[in-house]
Write a protein that binds this DNA or RNA. Sequence first.
DNA 1: CGCTAATCTAGAACAAGTTCCTACTTCGGC
DNA 2: GCCGAAGTAGGAACTTGTTCTAGATTAGCG
Lengths: 213, 213
Amino acid sequence: MTVDASATAGSPVPAAPASPVPPLTERQEARRQRILRATQQLAARGGFDAVQMREVAELSEVALGTLYRYFPSKIHLLVATMQDQLEQLHDQLRRKPPVSADPGERVAETLMRTFKALQREPHLAEAMMRALTFADRSVSAEVDSVNRLITDVIADAVHAGRPLTRSELAAVRVVTHTWHSTLITWLSGRASISQVKADIDTACTLISQAAAE
Amino acid sequence: MTVDASATAGSPVPAAPASPVPPLTERQEARRQRILRATQQLAARGGFDAVQMREVAELSEVALGTLYRYFPSKIHLLVATMQDQLEQLHDQLRRKPPVSADPGERVAETLMRTFKALQREPHLAEAMMRALTFADRSVSAEVDSVNRLITDVIADAVHAGRPLTRSELAAVRVVTHTWHSTLITWLSGRASISQVKADIDTACTLISQAAAE
DNA sequence: CGCTAATCTAGAACAAGTTCCTACTTCGGC
DNA sequence: GCCGAAGTAGGAACTTGTTCTAGATTAGCG
């Protein structure tokens, strides 16, 4: 159950772009992609519980041991899937940035657009978010990387140019906290879509203020 | 793996005070307490992973089947433990309410005091919070009840008397989201104590504003 | 080309949550 | 005090994440 840090730094794990990752051969990269695709597929169908390691292995035509060599746990696998999705999302958002005038509104717009994307595959969203919040210390690096991606997405929405001020950063942190937590609440059926929107809007007022300083 | 709603409504489960819970006999209440105490003990020692159902059963001198009759899953068990702790906390806070003048500061003070309490038993905190955020729909009722408890704690800190205004309620929601999420971040070693404090303070400014309206 | 280390496959084995079954107690009503 | 129903003990069995082993395959290199 405990996976030490060295496992995280092991060969085919992508993880943070900082660690010295020996480049993957073509076939290895293909395997990795097959695994991630299979994971998405299973997750999209039945959520966290439907992502069973044996099934992922079978569907991606890889031995169970190999799956574990690429992703040292189910949580690592799903967090990596989230990284994957977030990168795609970030690209899309760069192509179509939010249009509102106010920074806080731009952030809210961005997050609501993301939320709509998640609603299209609620099971996949559930699987990824459950993994993200359930992750323990052995997945810190990967979870941090996901958080950085989200923070970047939000930071882009605040303003393209200059780095964020201290108070803007503080506001962004609270926005990401609210985003994660309200999403979880929605995914487990304890909040409505409009409730999620309201929570995001509330948190985003902090950004408007911080930016106005 | 899936537990339907009827299980939640089963006999000895306390759950929401709404469902018609047949009163427990003295021995049953004693069993329930033994189970909760054993859970706390194991959780305090080694966190989520150390709470193993077989061990809880053994330590509380109850058969495994009986444990499952009282708490239909490990998650239910830990969420119930959290309810238990929160009730104690709420009592303590009622005896010693926060002293700051500003509502937002009172909330921040309350949460920081709670945070200090959690720091005393970080493993127990980890176990309860992991369970809370990992809980799926089958635990909705219990998780909601925990959320209500936290909301009450915060609402008390905002102001003893009148009910909260709409915008205060919105602010309180964001504060609880921030609280949960920043705690998780701290528990998985991705944020420092001072970071947690900063996040709480940031979120609490929303309350000050809402109360000032 | 042939060698060696790393990687991969197939499948057994193990761990912990959960379910199920059978016999024994306890409870509430008579 | 007695009876049927509900609750409990004890433990086997099942599920799924994870680990381990032995025997192919592959990649890189002289």
